[in-house]
Design a protein around this nucleic acid. Structure first.
Lengths: 145, 145
DNA sequence: TATGTATTGCAATTATGTTGCAATTTGATT
DNA sequence: AATCAAATTGCAACATAATTGCAATACATA
């Protein structure tokens, strides 16, 4: 996490008389690149680090403060840091090694959203776009067919 | 679910000596429009209808047979019916009433995927695109700000 | 450093997801 | 239509994930 992000985080927390603690820094970092394995690992056991309960509670707090929002996809949800912390972007996600490649926002996507929103008289607030497939490295190995 | 879908489903199941049962029809329909509330409700309790366990098991079976696939978004996953059953499309999802509006696939999205994939030497397999916001009806009511 | 508030961790609870096994349903065959 | 083997389901028990209450700790500031 960048110093700038940390300052922003501190500022938003301060508004509600909340402290920027180690646990909250950790929680924030989890949300920057929420990778299935690492997060499950942290949430599954009481690692010597920070208690699972604290992570859950800080996620809730972040949501109240608008630091993250919850986006339903199917009947699960994903948590997404608000644009103020992570400029909006998209992901290429490798099905094999689970690596995530960040890609910049694209005008064509924004235009698409504008078009269909007008069509359905819909007021867009957030969007999520993710491409799964095989990264450069994993295409070389077997199993990427 | 359409008759055509039902026939397809039956055919895929038959290949593996599986039967098209009431429970499997129900499971399939859940996946057509997987809305958070209704699915949670069905999976949470043993409603007089079909047992939770059966739903879970049929989802697993569907996955093995390629009827649905699992797509990770953040540290949760979503289940998506394969294109053969539901032509690939995207969603406008209302944050207020949770209504889902289907939108057709768009060339501009496909082009975008092609472009960034080339850029990162990435082999795309699936993608997920979802816009959250407020539908026509809910914009009229309060709370949609 | 003393004080009131925010934060955390632990233990207990609830909700979600999985497994083993016996009972039921299916459709294929006689 | 009765029988049979295989597939499917439901129940109960279990495992894991998420939430809540409460007491202990850390924090900001006076």
């Amino acid at each position: 996490m960048t110093d700038e992000q940390q300052e922003q985080l501190k500022a938003v927390l301060a508004k509600g008389n909340h402290h920027l603690t180690q646990a909250r820094l950790k929680t924030f970092e989890l949300l920057v690149h929420p990778e299935p394995q690492s997060i499950r690992e942290i949430l599954s056991k009481n690692n010597g680090d920070i208690d699972r309960v604290t992570i859950y509670r800080n996620i809730d707090l972040f949501e109240k403060l608008g630091i993250v929002h919850r986006l339903y996809v199917g009947w699960k949800f994903k948590l997404e840091l608000s644009d103020q912390f992570i400029p909006h972007h998209h992901h290429l996600s490798c099905l094999q090694c689970q690596k995530i490649i960040d890609i910049e926002g694209e005008q064509s996507i924004d235009e698409f959203i504008k078009k269909v929103s007008a069509q359905f008289n819909f007021l867009p607030q957030q969007h999520h776009f993710e491409v799964s497939g095989y990264c450069h490295d994993c295409q070389a190995k077997e199993g990427s067919t």
